[in-house]
Write a protein that binds this DNA or RNA. Structure first.
Lengths: 237, 237
DNA sequence: ACCTTATGACAACACCGTTGACCTGTGAAG
DNA sequence: CTTCACAGGTCAACGGTGTTGTCATAAGGT
């Protein structure tokens, strides 16, 4: 049973399922994404996906060796969508800023999928394309190889990490999300100055600040540091 | 069955299990942490935990309403441990750097707990204590309230985001983790210069860099930016 | 038109979290 | 010292999960 999966390119026989659906890698990934968005991350299971597709669950194992493979395919599709929407201008800093914000926005647009896939290295088409593109932007700007890789690594990790963190809140069930928002307004804002002087003194700022994402600030920080480094390099450091 | 859980303080009757173990909230949390450490993240299940404790799995529901409650208790314990192990010296930058690295390391040591709890605001004892402490460090250093909160937000989000991201890999089942490690060495390092010139040119650096975490670098970036801002403020900005 | 075989279906396995019902020893009250 | 309510343990079951070995059949190259 170990080698049941046939690569997409080699597939020929398009045999419909009992319910008349013709399966394909793309259809499965699309359906999985829809399932996650509509019914939550926990709604994604082989059996449910099979039901949603109109196919026996075990049929999916003809396309993906195990659930993890499917997750990677989903992650890659998300990367691809982000990349296709991005329009580089040739100005490395503006382009990377735009891409970072798009990655973050993309994660927020598919919070449940983002949470599940942000930390995976897919090694698939779109991911490879993204790596190649970003490295190209950096090397084109004049970063030496080692430096380009360092910036790339920081940039990508940052976008993924914040994307997942901020998505996670969005992905919480409504009541839990509201409850969390209240914690700052009630629990923290209600602490006594006698026992918690620093929280009490800054409560107003805390409530306001913790509502938003700190990603844009962190991204600009990273890009500024990279720009500074690039200037040093150009000056012949 | 809805209100089976008796608060720890109100517990009186210490009836041993069939195997002679006397259960308690602390013992359960400790055993869960040990289980994660010794047998990997996937080893934590109610049934396995019950077996490890020498108790029926359903007994645990006398102490925690569901698995998520248990996870939060574990997370709280982790925050407590990190905070207790931290020895502030009075130098804000060194202290925050040390704390950030400890938070990150704590997450990596207990990946599953970190992944599940990074995006939750618990409002529990240790979390409040952590907020108060960090704000104290920043205000003590001379950051005005609004600025202190901004730095606090960035600092905490960053530690949590990277902690979760880096943990997530550790939390993967063994085979998936090994597979990911290989992707950089095989898939990426094997790409042709003709089709992927930038990856091919930097493959050596990529393999080396992507192995480690970019958190320490990001942390230093954040602290440097904060120090710069503080200098401006002190200069009477 | 045949034959191979890709691909779908089925049934089964071992695990999971959770719950309702039951049983028993603890520890406080009289 | 005995009594007895009930906290806290156990048991069995439910419906879910991923995964696989086996079988059936229709697609498509010859």
């Amino acid at each position: 049973m170990s080698e049941r999966v046939v690569p997409a390119a080699a597939r020929r026989r398009r045999r419909p399922t009992k319910e008349g659906v013709v399966l394909s890698e793309e259809l499965i990934v699309e359906t999985a994404l829809r399932l996650i968005e509509e019914h939550g991350a926990e709604a994604l299971s082989v059996r449910r996906l099979g039901r949603a597709l109109g196919a026996d669950p075990s049929s999916l194992y003809r396309y993906f060796r195990h659930t993890d493979d499917l997750m990677l395919a989903i992650a890659d599709e998300l990367i691809g969508r982000t990349l296709r929407a991005w329009r580089p201008t040739g100005h490395w800093r503006a382009d990377l800023r735009d891409l970072g914000l798009r990655m973050h926005a993309g994660a927020l647009a598919h919070p449940r999928a983002a949470v599940l896939s942000a930390h995976r290295v897919t090694g698939r088409t779109y991911e490879i394309q993204a790596v190649e593109t970003i490295l190209g932007v950096l090397r084109g700007a004049g970063f030496p190889d080692a430096e380009a890789v360092r910036v790339y690594h920081a940039f990508v990790d940052q976008a993924l990490a914040y994307g997942a963190l901020d998505s996670a809140n969005t992905a919480l069930p409504r009541p839990a999300r509201d409850a969390e928002a209240d914690v700052w307004r009630t629990t923290y804002a209600g602490l006594s100055a006698a026992t918690h002087p620093h929280i009490a003194a800054t409560a107003r700022h805390l409530v306001a600040s913790m509502r938003g994402s700190s990603y844009p600030a962190a991204l600009d920080l990273l890009l500024t540091a990279a720009a500074t480094r690039l200037a040093e390099i150009r000056a012949g450091d």
